[in-house]
Amino acid sequence: MIFSPPEAGKPFTNKIPQVHLREFHKIVTRFYSMETITLSGQLFQYLITGITVGSVYAMVAVGFNIIYNVTEIINFAQGEFVMLGGLIMVFFHVVMGLPLIMAFPATVILVMLVGILLDRLAIRPIRQPSVLTLIIATIAASILLKGAAMFIWGKDPYDLPAFSGRNPITVFGAVIQPQYLWVIGFLIVIVIVLSIFFDRTIIGKAMSACADNPNAASLVGINVKQMILLSFALSAAIGAVAGITVTPISLMEYDRGAMLAVKGFGAAILGGLGSFPGAILGGLIMGTIESFGAGVISSGYKDAFALIVLLIVLFFRPSGILGSIEISKIKRF
């Protein structure tokens, strides 16, 4: 690329030529894209990318909801599960050379262990849990995990081979990486597995009971502490799946967790905190807005679009699209 954006490290005195170059760059790329790709193809491309990214946000949001529903805790370290999923998978699959079919479950189990440790070491020891201390504890855990990842893997981003090659498929003028379909597919699998788990199995029903009323649940013989532990393990597993599937598309590095957590939580709130269909819907909307915003308006503000939408939702309808105000009033936090 000839007209690349200005490099970092240049002094501020270069201000005017920088702006000039950037504008020029924009015009050139716009001209290019109009020549080679049709407008509808372009828009379809944004939609597909948005849904893929949105699927990852949806998985993070589902993870938030599982823990929130059982414990009413918002786990700010949720994004770190995704980061760990990606990086541990790189270790098993690329460094150790395990085949995909073995590395995948090994990674998920290891990240689940991290989730269990998070509950045992950071959440359960807190004697007087209040919303403030719980938020601070999960933030602390998230910095710890991020620091540990930096210690182990360094600061470079890591790549993972795509599950089924990197030959793009062209549909309606949009280029689709096969890995996009894997991400969307795994979201669908997670949705199906979770709905069976919560509706049909006794453990799933016990977890739903804890979410409804922990005191009543323990009265009927449900071990609430175990259910909390299970919720952390489950949401860590989903985070790991998100990380494993998205790494071949966007690479993975140690500090990706915070932004993923923020956007995933945004998706959860957008859909209605605690609602699983809401989380999926919120994630997909969030990803699509981000993709269109970055493509049509400005790529520099890519991360801001989703957050602005989040703020608007928070200010005008904090219960989200599918959430209900009545339920949010009952919740302790």
Binding site: K15, I74, M259, V262, F265, G300, A304, L311, F333
Partner: peptide, 24 residues
């Protein structure tokens, strides 16, 4: 309240940070 407020202020902080970076 609680998480919602934490999230709103967090989002606001990140948006302002992006503006500092982008409005060169």
């Amino acid at each position: 309240k609680g998480h919602y407020l934490a999230m709103a202020t967090l989002a606001f902080g990140i948006i302002v940070y992006i503006i500092f970076n982008e409005e060169a």
